[in-house]
Write a protein that binds this DNA or RNA. Structure first.
Length: 650
RNA sequence: GCUAAUAUGGCUCAGCUGGUAGAGCAGCUGAUUCGUAAUCAGCAGGUCGCCGGUUCGAAUCCGGCUAUUAGCUCCA
């Protein structure tokens, strides 16, 4: 029979396997093959071919090949765990970005110390080089088999498979696991693996279900690649803002202040001030009106906005309330604001608006408060009080598209200045099919707004992923996502269209035809949450920020006390020119001072000695540049001022 | 909130199976006045996160709380 390849064709015996095909092409290919694709479908190497099939051999060079490899490793982990702890129950064991995990229900909890034992058992399974065989069963038989092995989670999985699903199993020696596959032909193919973490995870991702034990691991083709990966992961941790930010004196936390309440120290506060001024000025240039609204309000406001019904458990409430959110004593209840929207709406409602007043663009550097669950806090990324560049554009239906695009343009501009434009991805966060009570109940509004946003996003040719059940309680969002050093993704910036607020807040404007109409609202952030953005900046630059956002741009180091006066004179001139600088006045050797200034990642270090003092020059050490140069102080100042204004990203 | 781990001077960490704390860096003092990533010496600094329990005796064992970290859930 004839089999089609990417380039050319192959003559094989009837019923030949993919592996046989690979062997016919070359022995080398057969050795490196891990799976195959028949007519584009990923399958085992043992899968048989039919005349006319298109065949592609998958190796570890392919992403899918590595996934098959890691998935097989997950099965080896499962088998090893079953060997060591026969009473445990297996749940699921998928491949993830950098490896795999397996969720397991242990009768008695295991610890990290048990990893050695499990890894040892895995090694035995690999060394035994057991063949891995696929077989299929009808549903009833499949359930029976898993019941025999007392795998209750697998039984549940089988029962939830669609009616027409093929139910397949993989058997390696005495171990059999429910799995769609494909897998490697035998366990001996695994060369380098390691178990990396031990955590908990809810069965089926639902917090109402039992929490299982999740074992994370990874596997590579070669030991050297595994080592490289582990070292890279260690290196990434050194950039972790939560460590670096503290080391560099950017922020701290205090037990007595509380969880999720970071304290920004002078350097961190300075960076935020620089970013805030930049953003507020840019917003003003783009027609935003700055507002300053209260940090708290009566529950009455949140009842109108829907927060009281949909968001109350995440709010800090001042005063005693019952489970319906009412004061048992009939007192006035205040709450810290989790968002700025309802406050800015009050400004719009102040006085009758004409269509000529629209779009009405409000923005504010707002402190917001959200009672995140205790386990959810993380450094500066997830906190309970944060500063959001929060704004609302109140406009006509016709203006929505243009205003939305302007919001995105502003965010692009800011991301460019931060050097982060290429670090983000886009998510269209919809309610989608999910209709839980966490969303405002208005199908028409949801459908209409989601459709409207999709048209805009498609028109912008944005490369976005759609995500159901990720919307805000009041509407869909365009989320601009960024990843931290651990690869965990968070929302940096969000732009949202709200179609219901006009009506629920009774906002209106008088249109050209004299009719009162409800406006549309765009909720948006330009730079996102300052603390979170700062966290990602620390990690991106490993603390070596672009000049314009450095809390200390220049450090002046006198060589001896003789030139201290000159150093101070230099610093005074720099400060007067708007350059942020410090003088290291300590009586230390110049090498010592340079070392410290460099560890602090100061962009410019100026060494001043007798020579420099004599002719009003400075010896310039640029961060990351080996050569040093002596230039006139005036010249240096002009250069730094220019560089600062340009917001050059290095 | 859940599953786990961790908590020792400002920082990084030692302190084995319970006998009552130690180093390096930082700090302070003195000497040194030095030309590009750590000058030398001395001093000081800790009720071992907090509260309770077991014990003749707890940094060490047990419980509770607080905080931190990874993950789950959630999310700007």
């Amino acid at each position: 029979m004839e089999i089609l390849l990417k380039n050319g064709s192959l003559e094989l015996e009837d019923g030949a396997s993919c592996l046989a095909a690979a062997q016919k092409i070359s022995e080398g290919l057969a050795r490196s093959a891990v799976a195959a694709k028949i007519n584009g479908e990923l399958c085992d190497l043992s899968a048989t071919l039919k005349a006319g099939d298109t065949l592609e051999i998958v190796t570890l060079k392919d992403r899918e090949g590595l996934e098959v490899y890691r998935h097989t490793c997950a099965h080896i982990l499962a088998q090893a765990v079953k060997n060591v702890y026969p009473t445990c129950n297996l749940a699921i064991g998928p491949v993830i970005e950098n490896g795999f995990y397996y969720d397991i229900d242990f009768k008695t909890p295991i610890t990290l110390e048990d990893f050695a034992k499990i890894e040892g058992e895995m090694l035995k399974i690999v060394k035994a080089n057991t063949p891995i065989e696929r077989f299929e069963l009808p549903r009833a038989e499949a359930v029976k088999l898993m019941k025999k092995y007392k795998e209750k989670y697998k039984v549940e999985l089988i029962n939830d498979l669609p009616e027409d699903a093929v139910i397949s199993f993989y058997k390696q020696g005495t171990f059999t696991d429910l799995c769609r596959g494909p897998h490697l032909p035998s366990t001996g193919k695994i060369k380098a693996f390691k178990l990396t973490a031990l955590t908990g995870a809810y069965w089926r991702g639902n917090e109402k279900n039992k929490m299982l034990t999740r074992i994370y691991g990874t596997a590579f083709e070669k030991k050297s690649q595994l080592d490289e990966y582990l070292i890279a992961a260690e290196e990434a941790k050194k950039r972790d803002h939560n460590r670096l930010g503290r080391d560099l004196g950017i922020f701290m936390t205090s037990d007595v202040v509380g969880q999720g309440l970071p304290i920004l120290m002078p350097k961190g506060a300075k960076i935020l001030q620089i970013l805030t001024r930049f953003v507020e000025d840019e917003e003003a240039k783009r027609g935003f009106m700055i507002t300053k609204t209260p940090n708290m309000a009566k529950s009455d406001l949140y009842k109108i906005s829907g927060h009281w019904a949909h968001y109350r458990d995440k709010m800090f409430i001042l005063g005693e309330v019952d489970k319906n959110g009412e004061s048992p004593k009939g007192e006035e209840i205040m709450a810290l604001r989790p968002m700025t929207c309802p406050f800015q709406y009050q400004i719009f409602k102040n006085g009758l608006k004409s269509y000529r007043d629209l779009p009405c663009r409000y923005s504010e550097t707002a402190s917001e408060f959200r009672k995140e669950a205790s386990g959810e806090m993380h450094g500066l990324i997830r906190i309970r009080q944060f500063t959001l560049s929060d704004g609302h554009i109140i406009c006509t239906k016709e203006q929505v598209e243009d205003e939305f695009k302007r919001c995105l343009d502003l965010s692009y501009y800011i991301l460019d200045a931060l050097g982060m434009r290429n670090d983000v991805s886009f998510r269209f966060s919809k309610r989608g099919k999910s209709k839980s009570d966490k969303y405002i109940d208005n199908d028409e509004a949801w459908n209409k707004t989601e459709a409207m946003m999709k048209v805009i996003l498609d028109d912008l040719k944005l490369d976005y992923v759609e995500a159901d059940d990720e919307a805000a309680f009041y509407g869909p969002k365009l989320d601009i996502q960024a990843k931290n050093v651990y690869g965990k993704e968070d929302t940096l910036i969000t732009i949202q269209i709200d179609f219901a607020a006009g009506e629920s807040f009774d906002m209106h404007y008088v249109d050209a035809d004299g009719v009162k109409r409800h406006p549309y609202v765009i909720h948006r952030s330009s730079i996102g949450c300052y603390e979170r953005t700062l966290a990602l900046l620390i990690e991106k630059y490993a603390g070596a920020f672009p000049l314009w956002m450095c809390p200390v741009q220049v450090k002046v180091l006198p060589i001896t006390d003789r030139t201290l006066a000159y150093a101070e004179q230099v610093a005074e001139k720099l400060t007067y020119a708007g350059i942020r600088c410090e003088v290291d006045k300590r009586n230390e050797k110049i090498g010592y001072k340079i070392r410290e200034a460099k560890l602090e990642k100061t962009p410019y270090v100026l060494v001043v000695g007798d020579k420099e003092a004599e002719d009003m020059t400075v010896n310039v050490n640029r961060r990351g540049v080996e050569e040093k140069s002596t230039v006139a102080l005036q010249e240096f100042m002009a250069k730094v001022v220019e560089e600062d204004a340009k917001k050059i990203i290095f």
